[in-house]
């Protein structure tokens, strides 16, 4: 949406042609989620991404999946992916060892509206693994702090043990003009943070709704309720952006699986202005 990107096809490689890349490290984030860093071939267009974009990750003989890039867009020596192990391909990917190879295509899709948000406050609302595709946007704001007003990160997870990037998250909260609040659906006695749905955190947010750009990623149910809440708090729909999830097999609009109304989530999204998504989000089985 915000930036016009050179596509891999334009960079001279066919859109469906993957490139092999070495796994540099694997970090266990939670009991089922891992952060994988890989080393793209030096100078390869695969490493040039905008916050919110995704790559197609392939593991030998098992299959290919769209995975959001969760690292810093300005550190091109590594590509970072945070992957929740929920199926065969994700399991294979998170059990790779440093030095082994996977193959990647990309980057694909639209990006968070970092340009449109300049001079405004950035409100990030993430649910579950949805924090991963938003992290590059947070890195971008932190790197270009003077370009933005307040940064607020609201994050909802299932339980304390499901929360991603906990140390980093706590550090964001310490930065000037920055709020980072998280809440869980189920907390134990040792959890001293918030318990409740992520929208309940909005009351702690100090920002001017008309001067704010909101970026949302998480389960669709969560995003539906969050957009309603944001609207009721005076945020115009045109200042809300969502990252949608659909079955994406090819990433380039050829497989047809990810269609949502008139859009292909892979090439028109995954990041959409809420104004475009609003007519379709409440249509069951669209």
């Amino acid at each position: 949406m915000s930036l016009i990107l050179e596509t891999p096809a334009a960079a001279g490689r066919p859109a469906m042609q993957p490139v092999a890349a070495r796994v540099a490290s694997i970090i266990k984030e939670t009991h089922d989620t891992f952060t994988l860093t890989i080393e793209p071939p030096e100078g390869d267009p695969v490493a040039y991404f905008q916050p919110g974009q995704f790559s197609m990750l392939y593991d030998f003989g098992v299959g290919e999946l769209p995975i959001s890039i969760s690292g810093d867009p300005e550190r091109r020596e590594h590509l970072t992916y945070t992957i929740r192990s929920v199926g065969q391909v994700t399991y294979q990917l998170v059990t790779r060892k440093p030095g082994e190879s996977i193959a990647i295509r990309g980057p694909f899709g639209s990006s968070w509206p970092m340009k449109e948000a300049r001079g405004k406050s950035v409100l990030i609302i993430a649910g579950g693994i949805g924090l991963a595709p938003l992290r590059p946007a947070i890195y971008h704001v932190l790197r270009h702090r003077g370009d933005y007003n307040r940064l607020v990160v609201l994050y909802g997870g299932r339980s304390p043990r499901d929360l991603l990037y906990r140390k980093e998250f706590a550090a964001w909260g310490m930065l000037p003009d920055t709020q980072a609040l998280c809440t869980v659906d189920y907390g134990g006695v040792s959890w001293r943070g918030y318990v409740g749905v992520v929208t309940t955190l909005l009351r702690h947010v100090r920002m001017q709704p008309t001067e704010t750009i909101a970026m949302l990623c998480g389960p669709e149910i969560m995003m539906r309720y969050a957009t309603r809440e944001l609207e009721s708090r005076g945020l115009p729909p045109s200042q809300i952006y969502l990252s949608m999830e659909r079955n994406m097999k090819c990433a380039v609009g050829f497989c047809g699986h990810c269609q949502m109304g008139p859009y292909f989530v892979c090439k028109d999204g995954p990041v959409f202005p809420y104004t475009k998504m609003k007519p379709y989000m409440d249509l069951y089985e669209l």
Binding site: D32, V86, D185, G196, V197, P219, I221, M222, Y225
Partner: peptide, 17 residues
């Protein structure tokens, strides 16, 4: 009640809602 219903749905579950 709305908040509780959303928690009950367990949107972040590994199996989906």
């Amino acid at each position: 009640l709305t908040a509780t219903r959303l928690q009950v749905v367990d949107v972040y579950s590994a199996k989906g809602a």
